[in-house]
Design a protein around this nucleic acid. Structure first.
Lengths: 195, 195
DNA sequence: TGTGACATGTAATATGTTACATGATTGA
DNA sequence: TCAATCATGTAACATATTACATGTCACA
């Protein structure tokens, strides 16, 4: 194999992974906070991409501390209750450089979509199975859109402008998927048995 | 932490990861083929999500063989040149059940978008930095759309209907992102300094 | 005969998940 | 006081990446 086509790394010393960038962003956003409160942000976010599992966050925060991007302060409820962390100047620079252009190619590339992935192999199902696939996908997608909308409305009060814009982006994405599913349905109805 | 909010597993014995499902799909699609040819499919796919690295594919194929989802045959160029693999009946069932509803929630949820992720923290940049972010993102996104379109046209001859539908989906996704970026730009122009 | 592409793998490494362990706090 | 929840972690595990180690084949 050419052994190079889409390399992601090696992570230069100064570079951040997505999760590291997000964690710095959360700390920047919240001000001094504990690892646990960072976890809660991920756990309560509507995106299922990261669970904010303890085994991810605690070691990661330690790593960022070691690299001098976070520094610790005392916990407001007493020093024996763990530590809060806040951005160092270097951490702030790292956040900005993760955030800002130039973007890696994969960040701009086609986003991964598990439904699209599966559709590639849809011909492996019977025509009836294909119809079920599309029906179920459309149903769950509509449900999910409604849920995102609700969540977004519920958070309107606390959310700033960028939260709002993110939600708009997520909804645009979901609607594009839904439109696409309907297009696929129409296409398959024309000729359900065609491979 | 509630220690449960978005659990992904534990992978039941019969379940497949995304990559495993895709590999079964590729084998189903291509008929008997070698691990190397599976790698090539991933490496040449326009999606950057998996590199099809040797260290991922070879052990994975072995795993699927052990689980009885793939079985090996002789290599057409001689038995000392490795083995081809093809789906067993169980493998075919596994593929169909990975493919078909019910879908896991995260498969229908908002797709991950690194640009959207970053935008959440855009307020950490200066107003000029924000403008650069949006300009660069839009530029690279347009470039990428053109590239996907070219790739799609180039493959038109060899591609079946589902390839075509996948490409349509990818383009819809990319266009939705582009429209969103333009919406964000307009929004920020109204009031560039507002946090 | 040697150079580069093709092909098959393994090893070291990194990262994230689940599951578990532990202690403090709260409240019925 | 006992259970549930909050909070902080660690351990075992799975999986994917990069980088490396080989071997074969075409062909100049």
């Amino acid at each position: 194999m050419p052994d190079d086509p889409k390399r992601r790394g090696p992570t230069r010393a100064a570079e951040l992974t997505e999760l590291e960038g997000c964690v710095l962003g959360v700390v920047w956003d919240q001000g001094p906070c504990t690892a646990y409160s960072i976890r809660r942000v991920f756990a309560s976010s509507p995106s299922p991409h990261w669970t904010g599992s303890a085994g991810a966050i605690y070691p990661l925060v330690r790593r960022l501390r070691t690299r001098g991007l976070l520094e610790s302060g005392d916990h407001p409820a007493g020093p024996d209750r763990g530590q809060t962390c806040r951005l160092t100047p270097r951490g702030r620079r790292a956040l900005r450089s993760w955030l800002a252009p130039p973007f890696p190619d994969w960040a701009v590339g086609v986003p991964v979509d598990p439904l699209r992935t599966r559709l590639r192999f849809l011909a492996a199902l019977s025509p009836a199975g294909r119809a079920r696939f599309l029906g179920e996908a459309e149903r769950k997608l509509r449900e999910h859109i409604a849920e995102v909308r609700r969540d977004y409305r519920r958070r309107l009060a606390e959310s700033d402008r960028f939260d709002w814009l993110m939600a708009r982006g997520a909804l645009r994405m979901l609607r594009a998927r839904l439109d696409w599913l309907r297009e696929v349905s129409l296409e398959l109805k024309k000729d359900p048995n065609h491979r």
